[in-house]
Every structure is written in C-alpha cells, then in structure tokens.
Design a protein around this nucleic acid. Structure first.
Lengths: 223, 223
DNA sequence: TGAAAAGTTGACGGCGCGTCACGCTTGGTT
DNA sequence: AACCAAGCGTGACGCGCCGTCAACTTTTCA
C-alpha cells in the first residue's frame, strides 16, 4: 500500500494558516477586479490582462487560480447562482397553490436581479450588442431544480399535466428577457415585471393542458 | 440640404463590372467560410485568422470587407433576420384574431429556426457553455416590429390592453428559449414547440389585463 | 494604349496569451 | 532557534493573433 492518508486524529476546523488566508484573499482580489472590469468593458472586450492589471498580482499568479476569463466569469456566475437558488427552492417548496409557486419564483428572481445589477451589466455592455449568457454548472442545476419542482408539482396535482421541460424553458426565457427590459427602464420596478410574468403564466398554465394534440410528458414522464 | 446627389442620368441596373463581381464573390466566400468555422469551433473560440485560413484570401483582404469577427457574425445574423422578418410581418398583418397573431408568429419562427440550424449551432457550441446572442440592428428592428404590431393590435381591440414592451420581451424570450430546447431534442418537432408557446400565450394574454395594479402602456402609449 | 483608381497581398510591429525557471515565504521538524 | 522542503508568487519569454500598410496586380475609362 502506498499512501494511506491517515487523518492525524481529526481536522474538521479550518487550518486557516497564512497560506490559506492569502489564497482566499488572492482569489477574492481577482474576482473583485474581474467584476469591475467586466462591468466596465463588457465581457467580450475584456482580456485576462485587463483583469490582471486591475490587480496587484503577477500574471502567473492569475493562472494559479483560473485558467481563463471564461473560468472567472463562470465563478462569478456560479456565486450568483448559489446565492439565489436556495431562495427560489424555498419559495417553491412552501407553495401551496400554482399562484404561490409562480409568484414566488418570479418575485424572488426579479428582486435578486435588481439587487445584483453589476452582474447583468457585464452581460449586456458588450462590443456592439453581443449578449452573453453562460450556463454554468450551478445555473444549469438551478434550471433542473426548477424542472424537478415543476414535475413534482404536476405529480402532486398542483399543476395540470404539461411538458415540464418546455415549461421550465418558458419560465427561464421570460425571466431573463423581462429582467433585461426591467433593468433598461428608468425606474427598475421589480413588481411590475413580476406581476406581468405571473399573470402570463397563471393564464398560460391553465390553458396549456388544452393543447389539441397534447402529448405532454412523453420524455421522462413517470406518470 | 448640402449635397445634392445628382444621379448621372440614371443607374438602376447593376454595374456588374468585373470589380463588383469579385467584391460580391469575396464577401460571399468570407461569409460562407465564417459560417463553417463558427459552426465548427463555436463563436467564442473562433479567431479572425481561423476564418481567413478557411478562405483562399489574404488577411488584408478580409479587413477590406469586415472589421472583426463580430462584424462577420453580425452580417450572418442580419441575413437571417432579413429573411424571416417579412414572413413574420405578413403572418401578423393577416391575423384577424389573437390566435392567428400568436400562432402565426411562433409557427413561422420555429419553422425558420429548424430550417436554419447551422446558425444556432454557432451560438450554442462554445467554449464551456457560453451562449451568445447578438442583437444586431436588423434583429432589434424585428423586435420593434413585433412591438409595433402588438401595439397596433391592442389599439384595434384585437388584444386586451397590456404592456406591449413586456409582452414583446416575453414572446422573444419564450421563442428563443423554446427553440433551444426544441433543437436539443432528438426529433425536432416544431409543431410541439409552437403549440406549447401558443397555448401559453393564448391563456396568458387573456389573464394579463387582470393585473391588480395594472398600469399598462405607461411608457409610450399613444393609445 | 496608357495611366489612374481600386483592390489584393503578406510581412511587420504590437500585444495578449500561457508557461516556467527562479526565488521568497511558510509550516513543520529537529 | 535553525533548517529545510514544499508551496506559491513573479515576470520574462516564445508563440500566435491582431490590424496596418507599402508594394504590387487588376480593372476601368478616356
């Protein structure tokens, strides 16, 4: 047997040595600089060098933490996703009606977007009008959580039987596109955006099962 | 008015000299190469040099036609937009009911997307999972046409009075996001996607005016 | 036919890229 | 305290992409 990996009794608490501290600090410095630069130049126009320059670190150090600007962006997006996902999940878990489900989802999302505008600036302010959306691991997981919750709600009889995959996609599409419009207006009115989306889906969900050639739940529908 | 622009008698027919011919040919060569390369490497990973290499031309020649890969992409997107916009406009113009309006829009869009998959490949096949949407002049014009048509339909009493800007955004969001899902499935079923979207909006539009704190049409409502 | 206009070419300086040999800092051992 | 090995920061380097431009070729027109 080669390396045994014997734990020296136990090590549940953070080592928190100088080393770990600097590492966390550097990572944070880079992410913070990246946020600024992305917001400033837009994702497309930003180079790794721009991020490094906005930092007291050397170029080699950057690459100890991230492989590319894509990975930095991904980390930033993941952070956002991890912040909002539990809130969305909780809203949907405690929903007792369709209205609560839909309403909780959209209100939470738009309020988060409004409070985190810097991230969305980076997506929009780009050379010409290139819009960028990075579906990171955590973001995709968020989408799939939504789909699972929809499927569970359908199984419970809360929702009528519809194609959960398409419904998830529609919710995501409306959420992002309305968020975009919402931020573009002079007064950012999360309430107006949320109420619009909620009304749309409340009416839509009722109408959806009446599809003439309905074949909803073909794909993984486990009854 | 300063410059008078006196036409030298008339010049309605194409000059069609050798020069013009080569120019059109070169432009076409570059766009065709770019389509291939974008589809192959994804938009993000593609460099101008990659496009040039897929071409018998010299690097300097490329820059006689386009400033950057962004501009090439824009040209490709604009071509698509110009192809589909008249069809969408026609569908909506001849609509006598809300159903015809919504249905014509989505069916036309999804059928176009299915017939033009190469463009959408370029958007999706990207380093990691970066998704890119370029809102070019022509695409934005298409969005605004939709909003105008919605406003006209509301004025005519065809649609109930809703926030046309948000409704346009919601339609766009659902259209693009469902298109994405549709293409991802094994069998590309434009009908299924269209029927889902149509049912969603048919129900939604009916529900929308019942917004509790409705203030629809605040912005440019010349109703 | 001649020559100006238009367009093509590819080599070039500039710069962003990711790497790596070097040296300092840290944490553990005696 | 002294030492050492491992870990990490550093920045110069070679590579390839960027957009330009002076020289050259083709087209147009008188």
């Amino acid at each position: 047997m080669e390396t045994e990996f014997i734990q020296p009794i136990a090590r549940p608490q953070k080592p928190s040595g100088k080393r770990e501290q600097t590492k966390a600090q550097n990572r944070h410095t880079i992410l913070e600089a990246a946020r600024t630069v992305f917001a400033d130049l837009g994702y497309g126009a930003t180079t790794v060098r721009d991020i490094i320059r906005a930092t007291p670190l050397a170029s080699g150090t950057f690459y100890n933490y991230f492989k590319s600007k894509e990975e930095v962006f991904q980390a930033i997006q993941d952070e956002s996703a991890l912040r909002i996902r539990p809130r969305l999940r909780e809203e949907r878990a405690k929903a007792r009606t369709v209205e609560e489900f839909i309403s909780g989802t959209f209100r939470t999302f738009f309020e988060y977007v409004a409070s985190d505008q810097s991230n969305f600036h980076a997506i929009r302010r780009n050379t010409d009008t290139l819009r960028v959306r990075m579906d990171t691991v955590e973001i995709i997981a968020g989408f799939e959580e939504l789909r699972e919750d929809l499927e569970a709600a359908i199984a419970k009889g809360l929702f009528p039987p519809v194609d959960a995959d398409f419904l998830m996609a529609a919710i995501v599409g409306v959420a992002f596109e309305l968020a975009e419009r919402m931020l573009r207006r002079e007064i950012v009115d999360t309430n107006a955006a949320a109420e619009f989306a909620i009304a749309l889906f409340m009416g839509g969900v009722r109408a959806l099962p009446n599809l003439p050639t309905l074949r909803g739940g073909d794909e993984d529908g486990a009854g």
